[in-house]
């Protein structure tokens, strides 16, 4: 059977904060401070747009095909989220992306279960990432272990460690009050109660990369505390992880390099709490150029960062 023309792609699915924005599937590109998907311009602000734009920047640098974005408008009432859940449940088996990243979606359990059922029907099964509302839904549905990577911040890590909570607003007070030094304990608790993906990238003062309960690495430098206040800095990390997975890295490798690259781009942007996420994304090429070779151990796309089948572009170099 002829493969679907989009098979093997990185697919990022999430909502955008534009009411009545239709369900849209298309190639993602960057145009100044806008994300461009199938000709539609979307402001690159916090959320799915920041995540997709970060992935665009990384795949462009790696000379690989851009990500596909599945978007729908949703300002919290849930219509766009449901349209995305429904589309994925219905179409994913035909599509079979190489990497599927789920992002800002209303955390609702039953539709998430249907999506995971569709993922299980894909051949090959895509690498599966969740952040934001999708991660909340995955945890609340008891499906965390179906995922390859979660990218929680420290507060969301407390949510994953709380066996009962179905949203970070309802976590136990002592877990909310846990400081950053207690993140390893929270990681252990989350794995212990089956609420963690196989790989966790916990974003915070110190970034923790854990696999199946074991902390493999911490990333502390450069230390740019202002980044926590900037909407979208967590989204860009998840976009980078997605891109590096698409390029062929193992989940823990992708997580470590994404954490380092996000911090370095932040440093280069010399941010304040008023900095916009586009200013940090604009620094990714510089951070990659200066450090990707050192971080990934080898320095060409062909020798290590393998493209997806049919995904390599002609020309250019990493």
């Amino acid at each position: 059977m002829k493969p679907h023309p989009l098979a093997g792609a990185l697919l990022i699915a999430g909502t955008v904060p534009i009411k009545d924005f239709p369900l849209l599937l298309g190639k993602a590109e960057r145009e100044g401070d806008f994300l461009l998907v199938d000709g539609q311009r979307i402001p690159c602000t916090q959320g799915t747009a920041a995540m997709v734009t970060a992935a665009v920047a990384a795949l462009d640098y790696l000379n690989l095909d851009p990500p596909m974005a599945l978007l729908a408008g949703d300002v919290g009432e849930g219509r766009g989220s449901r349209a995305i859940y429904d589309f994925l449940s219905r179409e994913l088996r035909e599509f079979s992306p190489k990497v599927l990243s789920l992002h800002y979606l209303l955390p609702i359990i039953t539709p998430m279960k249907k999506v995971i059922s569709a993922v299980q029907g894909c051949n090959p099964r895509p690498v599966l990432i969740a952040d934001a509302g999708s991660m909340y839904a995955a945890k609340a549905a008891g499906l965390a272990t179906e995922f390859d990577v979660f990218t929680p911040d420290a507060g969301e890590m407390a949510f994953l460690a709380d066996s009962e909570a179905t949203h970070p607003a309802y976590i136990k007070r002592y877990l909310f009050e846990a400081d950053s030094k207690e993140v390893p304990r929270l990681i252990g608790q989350a794995y212990g109660c089956g609420n963690a993906a196989q790989t966790l990238l916990v974003k915070g003062v110190v970034d923790y990369i854990a696999r199946n309960g074991e902390i493999l690495e911490t990333v502390r430098e450069p230390d740019v505390p202002q980044m926590e206040a900037i909407g979208g800095t967590g989204d860009t990390i998840t976009g980078l992880v997605s891109a590096f997975l698409q390029a062929g890295l193992e989940p823990h490798e992708a997580a470590i390099i994404a954490a380092k690259a996000n911090r370095m781009a932040g440093k280069y942007a010399n941010p304040t709490p008023a900095t916009r996420i586009t200013e940090i994304i604009a620094r990714f090429p510089e951070a990659f150029k200066d450090h990707l070779c050192e971080w990934s151990g080898v320095c060409t796309v062909e020798s290590r960062l393998r493209p997806a089948t049919g995904g390599a572009r002609q020309g250019g170099e990493a």
Binding site: P17, T45, V75, L105, L106, A132, D153, A229, P273
Partner: peptide, 23 residues
């Protein structure tokens, strides 16, 4: 901002209304 009270940024969260509220 302490001096003016101007909201500089909104971050965190994962529900679809968060990017909307940010704007």
């Amino acid at each position: 901002e302490k001096a003016t009270g101007i909201i500089l940024n909104v971050s965190g969260g994962g529900c679809p209304d968060v990017p909307y509220l940010h704007l």
